[in-house]
C-alpha cells in the first residue's frame, strides 16, 4: 500500500469516521466557529482523506485552528464527523514529532490564571464520549 493510502487509512482508523458517507451538505462548515481562520474548510477535510492527501491536512493551519468543540460532529447529518477526522490528522502529526500526551495529574500545576478556560474545556470535551 502506498504511503498516501496508508495515512488515509490511519486517519479513518483513528477517527472511526467514514468519509464516503459525506453528501457535501456543508453543515460542518456552516457550524464551525473557527471557519474564517481555516485555510482548509471543515467540509473539505473529507475530500483530502478520500484523495489520501493527509500531508496537506498536516501542513494546514486548520489543524491548529480547530477548537475541538465538536459542533460539526454533533450536527453532521451523515455521521461523517469531520471534527474527528481533523483530530486524527493532528494525532498523526503529534506522534511523528514524538510528542506525548500529559498525564491527568500533570495538568493542575500547568494551569495558571491566564490560561483560557475554554482550552481546558475543549481538551476534556474530546474525551467526553
Amino acid at each position: 500500500m502506498s504511503e498516501k493510502k496508508n495515512q488515509a487509512k490511519m486517519v479513518q482508523e483513528i477517527s472511526g469516521a467514514n468519509p464516503y458517507k459525506c453528501m457535501k451538505c456543508g453543515k460542518c462548515s456552516a457550524t464551525c466557529p473557527s471557519y474564517d481562520e481555516m485555510d482548509i474548510k471543515p467540509h473539505q477535510f473529507v475530500s483530502y482523506v478520500q484523495r489520501g492527501d493527509i500531508e496537506a491536512l498536516a501542513q494546514s493551519k486548520s489543524l491548529w485552528k480547530c477548537l475541538s468543540c465538536f459542533a460539526c460532529v454533533e450536527r453532521c447529518p451523515r455521521d461523517v464527523e469531520p471534527g474527528r477526522i481533523i483530530d486524527a490528522a493532528r494525532q498523526i502529526v503529534v506522534r511523528q514529532r514524538g510528542g506525548n500526551y500529559l498525564k491527568a495529574e500533570e495538568i493542575p500545576p500547568l494551569v495558571d490564571e491566564d490560561l483560557p478556560q475554554q482550552l481546558l474545556v475543549s481538551a476534556y470535551r474530546r474525551y467526553k464520549r
Binding site: 456543508g26 453543515k27 460542518c28 462548515s29 456552516a30 457550524t31 459542533a71 450536527r75
Partner: peptide, 19 residues
Amino acid sequence: GQVGKVAPQPDGSLLVQAA
C-alpha cells in the same frame, strides 16, 4: 450549503449561520 445554526437575537431577529 446547509445551515449550521439559527440563533434568536435580543432584537427579535434570527441569526442564520450557513455555508
